[in-house]
């Protein structure tokens, strides 16, 4: 179940998350990147101030915002029936180690489809200067009782 009334709802800004160089390396290793991807020298050679996060890393920030929805009694989101439908990351600029990020999630849509609900969240991720750096768009499928 999910309450269709939460369409359009905006959740509060999350606490700052400091992107760490070793956390990036841990994420790179977990997503089977080549060891060279964690080279500070090559990141600097490409003109970056520090290591750049791998493309799906902002999921870590998105999770912090999603936690607010799961804990929101009004949303009635039954997480045990949730399946990840789709995911997208749109960048305004690369995220690098040292960035301090916050996020704000809004519920873009809640749709019903054959007994299931599909909820799309837009999570906007901001840097310490409050500039938008990335938008994470996620659709969760909440399986109906009989599905």
């Amino acid at each position: 179940m999910v309450n269709p009334q939460i369409e359009g709802k905006r959740y509060p800004r999350t606490a700052p998350y400091l992107v760490g160089r070793e956390k990036i390396r841990e994420f790179l290793a977990a997503t089977m990147a080549k060891p060279a991807a964690g080279s500070l020298e090559s990141a600097k050679g490409n003109g970056h101030s520090d290591l750049v996060v791998p493309p799906t890393f902002p999921v870590v920030i998105q999770e912090h915002s999603l936690k607010l929805v799961i804990e929101d009694a009004e949303a009635q989101l039954d997480f045990s029936r949730v399946v990840h439908g789709d995911q997208r990351f749109v960048y305004q600029r690369p995220i690098v180690a040292g960035d301090e990020l916050t996020s704000e999630l809004s519920v873009a849509s809640v749709k019903s489809l054959g007994g299931n609900h599909m909820v799309t969240f837009n999570t906007e991720i901001f840097d310490a200067a409050n500039e938008l750096v990335c938008t994470a768009i996620s659709t969760l499928v909440v399986r109906g009782e009989n599905a």
Partner: peptide, 25 residues
Amino acid sequence: MGISIQPVADWAGDSAKIVDYGVRF
């Protein structure tokens, strides 16, 4: 999803060049 972008990042030479990435599961 994270593994599937790695060969593209290797090819691009810099993962910062990947400005938009989306999939359906």
